[in-house]
Amino acid sequence: MNKLLETIKNYALSVIMPVIMIILLLIVSPETRSANAIISLLRQGFAPAVLGWGVLFNMKAGNWDFSIGARFVLGSILAGNLAMSLHLGMPGFIVLALVISLVLSTIVGFAYKLLRIPTLIVSIGICLIFESITRILYGGAGVHVSSEYMLFGKSPYDVIAFAVCFGIAAYIYYKRKLGYNVRAVGTNPVVAQTNGINAVTTKTNALIVSGLFAGLYCILSLSKTGVCAAVSGTLGSAATVFDAMMCVLIGMAICGKGNIIFSLYSGALIAQILKMGMMAIGLPTTYNKVVIALFVILFMVSSTRGDVFDGLKNRLFHKTKTV
């Protein structure tokens, strides 16, 4: 009984927050008041959550990787076009998307390992290169896949694919040595190093693993939309990265002692509902972005500066506050 209560407590926020957001959406947007609309809403969070898991490994390891968006775009263009031109079908597309994504992330990982400069700089540099390549390949036309390659956009395949991705993420994060090392290095690299964990290798591996999720995101995203356009070469893919980061930050903020992989899906759901809610109330796109940005900052503060909220709580309840 105690264990059950503990589990409920651990997951409470991750479940309650999206539920509250859904209720709010139902209030502001009457057209979403149907079972189908809500199920569709729950599916909206699948793809962003998958990319978010990739970003999670990076953020937890202390990497700031801005190349994951460019890797997704380049991976989608290469895998989609190659699969179609070689008539490889869905299995071939899946293999290509994963292999290309892993190759691209390995390039980022080894560039970091070799250069030993902050991941932020390495990833921005490589992001610009990858983005430029997307403008060169196939005349900058991006990719437009046929319906044959959009299997995972349909029910129940999208749910199955999401469940498989969830399993992979949870398995790597909680069951593999890499997951332990990522958490250790991200929290305290000095202690991790003293315990024989190689911080640089762990950060490199986290970058590579994020490639796996970028590849899975390629598959889910192309299955859903069928299209991926080339990006500008001036950090045009950053929006994808920020969207994923937002899922991670919300996930971390509501996770508590629960499962971060699950919380991150909740985070993705909240982010999607936020966007839909703003559209529903007719907020112009510019303001829409302002609100999203404010939410990112708010969740960033709550996940990295717990003391701000503790201080607020303590002041309200007359406890100590560090200035």
Binding site: R183, N188, A192
Partner: peptide, 9 residues
């Protein structure tokens, strides 16, 4: 003397 354990684990 320093802390040898890691938060979040």
């Amino acid at each position: 003397q320093e802390q040898g354990t890691i938060d979040g684990m």
